[in-house]
């Protein structure tokens, strides 16, 4: 508690990250010299066209992919191998089909060997917070896509990670559910103060959720620009959508992404 890395330094530091994949025929550069520092408590959203290496970037931070060159640090420590101080949410909920919602959330605790009673209490809190009450025993196939993703989110938050990495978590949801999930995620972020990095295709999602929006170019992925989001920390979905600042930023982003794609 007192050694919380939140107070000082960066939550995530990336410098000169480059990833090249070598296939038999050719060499492709997925990421090209990406540098980005993320402060504790920030909500950074990364937008970019498909295949720009956004997901790879998250996996590098998580220590699941090794960059060809460059350095990453998580909570001031260099990343070597899979990181434990994170929660990861994928586009697919990636739940265990044989476990009910609550048991799926508790997988996190079992895999980490966390204290059972404490984990169970935390799970119940999260279930309540995400509106999963009444569905604790439901198997994944009995849940809607949005509910499944809520379970995945709870699982990622169970151990109260200082950093939450989200790879297009709501990409497979319908527009309405997506808006609800955005609003919920915003609320959860405000309540927990977790540092979040969220990769998305959706400009609206990026602006509504982010304190900073990072725009990436098509392959090879580079950071084109970073926009601070000048919206209040506490956001209401409907209000934000009609806010002129939202409109301006969304238009800028759309223009930037469009021209980046055209130049490619």
């Amino acid at each position: 508690m007192t050694t919380a890395p939140a107070a000082t330094g960066t939550a995530i530091g990336m410098s000169g990250l480059t990833v090249r994949f070598t296939t038999r025929r050719s060499q492709t550069t997925a990421l090209d010299d990406v540098s980005l520092d993320i402060e504790p408590g920030e909500f950074v959203t990364i937008v970019g066209p498909s295949g720009c290496g956004k997901s790879t970037l998250l996996k590098i931070v998580a220590g699941l992919v090794k960059p060809t060159s460059g350095d990453v640090s998580l909570l001031e420590r260099p990343v070597r191998g899979p990181q434990k101080e994170i929660g990861f949410v994928f586009q697919k909920a990636a739940l265990l089909e044989w476990r009910g919602a609550r048991a799926n959330i508790l997988l996190q605790a079992e895999m980490r060997g966390m204290d059972r009673a404490q984990a169970a209490r935390r799970a119940d809190e999260l279930i309540e917070m995400t509106g999963l009450t009444g569905f604790e025993k439901a198997l994944p196939h009995e849940l809607s896509g949005g509910m499944q993703q809520r379970v995945a989110l709870c699982r990622a938050l169970l151990h109260s990670p200082p950093v939450l990495l989200m790879d297009e978590p709501f990409g497979a949801l319908d527009a309405l559910t997506r808006e609800q999930m955005n609003a919920e995620l915003h609320r959860i972020w405000r309540e927990t103060g977790t540092t979040v990095v969220l990769v998305t295709h959706s400009i609206a999602e990026a602006v509504f959720l982010g304190t900073r929006v990072v725009v990436m170019s098509p392959r090879p992925g580079r950071i084109i620009r970073t926009f601070p989001v000048e919206l209040p920390a506490h956001r209401d979905y409907a209000q934000v959508m009609s806010d002129p600042r939202f409109d301006r930023l969304a238009t800028d982003l759309r223009g930037l992404l469009g021209s980046a794609a055209a130049n490619h």
């Binding site: 972020w189 309540e191 103060g193």
Partner: peptide
């Protein structure tokens, strides 16, 4: 660590929202 983080985040959120909204839902 999480707890102190939580508090920090809540504090920040509350400050920026000019204290109007507490974090608890």
């Amino acid at each position: 660590t999480e707890n102190s983080l939580d508090t920090a985040g809540r504090q920040a959120a509350a400050d920026e929202a000019s204290g109007a909204q507490a974090a608890a839902p």
